[in-house]
């Protein structure tokens, strides 16, 4: 039997796995451990491409509970490789200085936490059976906030004077950016655009990244209604500064966006 998750969400009650993950777990529950491992992990020790990592987390926890040492080792090793792959995609060497050390630290802390939760039988790992990549992004965020570099590894886009928030962009830059983003944040829903833009956003300086990220999530720059969350209020700066940072980010990202748009039009 596949145990339900036990962690409770304040808003919705118990957490649940995604339907496709639950169905897969129930299917794999019916076979013995050796066959199950073969269905989860390929001959090279990697998680199979069609298997969601949430299933791996579930069966590692189960192998631990059932004292299935052989399964535990093989599944853990597949998870270890998967975590490394996830980090290599999210924190490539181009993103920040000393990325390799930071990736190593995140892996180490994640495995510490994973082991502690297995040992103590907590419900922390339930998050990773609901949404592994999302949960791992959240974990990574907490670690990066503690040990990450204060700035991203990025070449200055302009001279020092121009880089200041107080300096206006040339009107033609603002106009070009506005025209380019005329489709608004919804353009970000395009998978091709998103996959190209994500890594590019990560190369922006943190202040610009925050502005562009919030704008792409539909948060307005400013609003008259004092109860509305705006980028200016969230980042505790004025509207003028927010617009400047957004336009600088647009300028930096424009080359990449043009290539994506051109490819999409083909």
């Amino acid at each position: 039997m596949v145990e339900p998750l036990k962690r409770i969400s304040k808003k919705d009650g118990l957490y649940h796995r995604r339907a496709e993950v639950q169905a897969l777990l129930e299917k794999l529950d019916l076979v013995g451990a050796p066959e199950r491992i073969d269905q989860l992990v390929d001959a090279g020790g990697e998680l199979r491409a069609d298997i969601p990592p949430e299933a791996l987390v579930h069966f590692i926890r189960r192998a631990w509970r059932e004292n299935d040492a052989g399964s535990l080792e093989r599944l853990f090793k597949a998870l270890f490789r998967r975590v490394q792959a996830s980090l290599a995609a999210a924190i490539p060497n181009s993103r920040m200085a000393d990325a390799e050390t930071i990736r190593g630290e995140i892996v180490s802390r994640f495995m510490d936490r994973f082991a502690r939760d297995c040992r103590e039988g907590g419900t922390w790992l339930d998050y990773f059976e609901v949404q592994f990549e999302g949960g791992f992004a959240a974990f990574r965020t907490t670690v990066l906030r503690r040990i990450g570099p204060s700035t991203n590894k990025t070449a200055p886009l302009m001279g020092d004077g121009e880089h200041s928030d107080a300096t206006e962009l040339a009107p033609e830059v603002e106009k070009a950016a506005a025209e380019f983003f005329a489709d608004g944040p919804s353009f970000f829903d395009d998978p091709a655009f998103r996959s190209a833009l994500g890594p590019a956003i990560n190369t922006l300086p943190p202040d610009q990244k925050a502005v562009i990220g919030l704008w792409l999530q539909g948060i307005p720059i400013d609003a008259k209604d004092p109860t509305t969350n705006t980028i200016a209020r969230i980042l505790k700066c004025d509207e003028h500064t927010v617009r400047n940072r957004r336009d600088r980010a647009f300028k930096a990202l424009r080359k990449i966006l043009e290539e994506v748009k051109a490819n999409a039009a083909k």
Binding site: A90, P199, L214
Partner: peptide, 15 residues
């Protein structure tokens, strides 16, 4: 905010 940006820029595919 930091987390929302990490989620926004999640790679669509993990190789």
């Amino acid at each position: 905010v930091d987390c929302s940006l990490e989620l926004l820029t999640l790679p669509t595919e993990i190789s």
